[in-house]
Design a protein around this nucleic acid. Structure first.
Lengths: 337, 337
DNA sequence: TTGAAAGCGCTAACAC
DNA sequence: GTGTTAGCGCTTTCAA
């Protein structure tokens, strides 16, 4: 064996030679075409195993003009991405499901203009067969690029204002918020405040809708303050709430991380939780059981949402029609309310 | 304009025609080759802008046999990946840095045998120019595949037992653990326990080394228990510690998440923190400031580690020699110790 | 059912 | 400095 060092990656040609058939036949076997004789097929499969052949994706792409990869676009500003443990779930689910189809996941971050530009160019260049959008906002110029390029795209969580254009899978934010608010009411709480997320995100807007839907005009303006999903924002918002409504006896916080901040502010203000003020969170993230008291919260079925999102995209790639999917949430009662 | 609908993606040929030069010249401009006249260059650049040309990566790959993408391989078992907010940081840094070089990041999860197999085939197929390993274990068969394929690879955090084979960037785990232990000692604590991470991970092994390095034979066997970085493990470990050494007055926990669990167990056992038992964490993750009391911990410079890891990989792609990089940690004193 | 052959869009070696 | 051209490895007609 003198060619040990000089061994090159085998091509379809080598496989054809080893199997005693033409390159065309090898290709047909590899791509599961039906018109191949059994004997040819077995010969090819053996040759593939023997030679250790792996298809050259570039060559295949060149002729099929499909890339075998999809982009996951994160539009989150970097700090938030940084603080949110949930992304990992989506990524895991997406890579796993795509791998089933021998497709790969390319990650791009479109947090600023340069990032968006890169993604746009990537899409325009046809470097991906589809796009999986995460936390994309309605005004994002990327959306125009996507429509223009006609590339199949789905969103994980609705894209506000584009719900009818970009298919999505999401949790029932409104229903979850409603359930939590009703629970706080059932506890006998009278002055219930809310710390919302950014209102230009579906979670921000819909969780607030669920809240006001239950309380109606009792959801006084001063009982609602806004945060940006960070812990610091939750802490600041809670302070404002305490200052504006000193006799507040419950607060629904639109994310667990912000709720952790609120807990901190309440503690510093000398309020007991849940005795003086009941606190409800949202997400049921890792943080929910790390705080003290542990958070009563709304479980966001993130893994399922992720799975459904990817399923939608795959349907779309196969040119099937798809409908948005909304998954139920669940109230998780712990110690804070 | 009758061809609006039928518009195809422009090729290098279209650009050449528009610029009035040959395809070769266009290619030279695109790839920054020096031997091009200024006039030709400007003509080409204008033609590129006019036609909206974007290079076809598949075609380029086919001839250069470089793919323009690198794989990030996550070898973490899925649950842990799920609980660790830190991955997002690494991903953000990696995508950003690679984008600078017009390269993209493909994500693969090698949590089980099937996953490992997929990664191996991906590598063997030459689908990536390099690999970025995350939490890979020494025994991982992937490492053989990497050595065999000769693909440039680096690790984020050392690969235990392969430190000399796979370049890496990492935090100074041993030093950080030492600093925390010394700090606990300086507080006058006498019975200091430790909850370690898995000893087959560098963080697990080195943080323990730092601990025993300071305490010497005072690090009695019963004062050291092992966890797997989950919150539940931290809680269970703390209980065992309390049962074995009831008069324990401090504990160094190898991760903030486990420390949150330990806090829980201490609270349930009626011990005050830090008065009765001082608790030190590691990582300074989001959780550290969400617990109560807020965790005194060791800051792991994750973003910098990520940056250095990617830098090493890029150096390797450029065929430069590289050395492992170890970055300093920092003691962050909050309320738990 | 199969083989032969025409490209897919690009880079790089070669000639001028 | 620039044009011409030979492939890179694959899929997919078209004939047989």
């Amino acid at each position: 064996m003198s060619n040990l060092a000089a061994r090159k990656r085998p091509t379809i040609h080598d496989v054809a030679a080893a199997a005693g058939v033409s390159r065309g036949t090898v290709s047909r076997v590899l791509n599961g075409k039906s018109n191949v004789s059994l004997s040819a097929e077995t010969a090819v499969r053996r040759a593939v195993a023997e030679t250790g052949y792996v298809v050259n994706r570039a060559a295949r792409s060149l002729v099929t003009s499909r890339t075998g990869s999809i982009v996951m676009v994160l539009s989150e500003p970097q700090e938030r991405l940084f603080e949110d443990p949930n992304f990992s779930v989506l990524m895991r689910v997406a890579t796993n499901q795509l791998a089933e189809r021998d497709m790969s996941l390319v990650l791009m971050i479109a947090g600023d203009d340069r990032g968006r530009d890169r993604v746009a160019r990537y899409l325009r260049g046809g470097h991906a067969d589809g796009a999986l959008l995460v936390s994309t906002h309605a005004g994002d110029p990327l959306l125009d690029e996507i429509e223009r390029s006609g590339i199949p795209a789905v969103a994980c969580g609705a894209v506000l204002g584009r719900e009818s254009v970009i298919p999505y899978a999401a949790a029932d934010d409104r229903g979850g918020a409603r359930a939590m608010t009703e629970y706080l009411v059932s506890l006998g709480r009278r002055k219930i405040g809310m710390i919302t997320g950014p209102l230009d995100t579906p979670g921000g807007a819909l969780r607030l809708e669920g809240f006001t839907g239950v309380l109606g005009r009792k959801a006084a303006k001063q009982l609602v303050v806004h945060g940006d999903y960070t812990q610091a924002a939750g802490e600041a918002a809670m302070r404002r709430l305490l200052a504006a409504v000193p006799d507040i006896d419950a607060v629904f916080v639109a994310s667990d991380l912000m709720a952790a901040g609120a807990l901190q502010a309440l503690h510093e203000a000398g309020r007991r939780v849940p005795e003086d003020v009941a606190v409800g969170g949202f997400d049921d993230s890792v943080i929910a059981s790390a705080t003290r008291p542990a958070l009563t919260t709304v479980r966001h079925p993130l893994a399922r949402v992720a799975e459904e999102t990817v399923r939608l995209l795959i349907e779309l790639l196969d040119e099937h029609e798809v409908e948005p999917v909304v998954l139920p949430t669940e109230l998780v009662v712990r110690d804070s309310a």
